[in-house]
Design a protein around this nucleic acid. Structure first.
Length: 364
DNA sequence: AAGACGGGGCC
DNA sequence: GGCCCAGTCTT
């Protein structure tokens, strides 16, 4: 089935030119300094849907804190989430730790090197499985991500919708045919580097491309039309009132989010789904849900936060309470100086600025 | 097959 | 504002 497209494709010369370019131009990245499967694994999880420049500082800190599977397996989940704070897709962190614990318990602490075992671990899908097998264990397995689909959709002129699952399998078939048997690790990484630095989504640098001579899209001048991808749906909007509730000790009410779903197990300031509750019932609703009696002081600002699938429209209010205790382990008082010890989503980290700016107001 | 799941950077 | 990013899991 791959025969038609690859029939007149010079596989060996393509491989040679690609690997030659990679040897000269590969990026110097922290996870490329050694071949520890655990570190490759951590890097691949962090890199899911996340740019290299964003990942680098997180990776360095994470490895310093958890140098091997044993430290990560033994850690508190809250600490792991704190190390992941701001990186997004927090289920990656929870799944990674669960999988690492399985590696410690079931595999003697050694990252498994078979497709079946590796693919059965939480958070390791087809891409990450192939990436670890090829990069850490030098096995000729495809690792098809957005870069790979973009590069090969252009080189081979593939016009299927890359948002479709079936299309991804198609690319895995092509990579299986093309991948270097001598150096599969470099081959996969070379395609990713190429996609990240030259064969970019917009205005690709074809004049600098080491495999321009093999590129069917370039030959026809249609590199800007590929890959084909169906448009994403628009996000739904949700409105909340967020309450910065402070008592006389300088403690704030924060709550732990549910253990599943959006921002699972992270902490936040109380959020009121204001469309359903209504401003008139806000104080009563807070008392019934949180057991805290408050009085509103003033609105301190608006915040819009965009996720991939929804938008939060937040109105931030200051409120006061005379209470100093809550009988609940999910809802707690925390002193303003200790709030940063808890993992918070970025949207709520921004509210810490309101809290800190109100200190200055009081002091002035 | 379609949604849920973060956040940042670019145009 | 929309698109993209070294994707995976759930429904």
């Amino acid at each position: 089935m791959t025969n038609q497209i690859l029939k007149n494709f010079n596989k060996l010369q393509f491989e040679h030119d690609l690997l030659h370019w990679y040897a000269e131009s590969k990026r110097d990245l922290p996870w490329r300094s050694e071949n520890d499967p655990y570190k490759i694994w951590v890097s691949e999880i962090m890199l899911q849907q996340t740019k290299v420049d964003t990942v680098i500082p997180y990776f360095n800190h994470f490895i310093e804190k958890y140098p091997s599977v044993y430290e990560l397996a033994a850690a508190e989940q809250q600490d792991v989430l704190k190390a992941w704070e701001g990186l997004g897709y927090y289920s990656r962190a929870r799944n990674l730790q669960n999988a690492v614990r399985e590696v410690v318990e079931e595999y003697g602490g050694k990252v498994p090197s078979t497709p079946k075992e590796l693919g059965s671990l939480k958070g390791i899908g087809p891409y990450t499985k192939g990436a670890i097998l090829s990069i850490a264990f030098n096995q000729p397995e495809p690792a098809v991500d957005g870069n790979v689909m973009r590069v090969f959709s252009r080189v081979l002129k593939i016009e299927e919708d890359i948002a479709q699952q079936s299309t991804k399998k198609l690319f895995e078939d092509y990579v299986r045919e093309l991948i270097s048997k001598e150096d599969p690790s470099s081959f996969n990484q070379a395609i990713m580097d190429l996609g990240a630095t030259i064969c970019t989504p917009k205005s690709p640098g074809c004049m600098l491309c080491p495999v321009q001579a093999y590129c069917r899209a370039f030959a026809e001048g249609i590199q800007d039309e590929l890959p084909i991808k169906k448009k994403a749906k628009k996000q739904k909007s949700l409105s909340y009132v967020v309450l910065l509730i402070e008592n006389k000790n300088g403690d704030f009410v924060i709550e732990k989010r549910l253990e599943n779903g959006l921002l699972a197990n992270l902490w936040q300031f109380p959020m009121v789904p204001i469309e359903e509750i209504g401003m008139d019932h806000l104080v009563n609703w807070i008392y019934s849900e949180y057991g805290v009696h408050i009085h509103l002081r003033k609105k301190v600002g608006n915040l819009k936060h965009v996720f991939s699938h929804l938008i939060w429209k937040l109105e931030i209010f200051e409120a006061k309470t005379t209470q100093t205790e809550i009988h609940d382990d999910r809802i707690i008082f925390v002193h303003r100086d200790d709030i940063t010890k808890y993992p918070f989503p970025v949207s709520h980290q921004k509210m810490l600025q309101y809290i800190n700016s109100s200190i200055e107001e009081d002091t002035v």
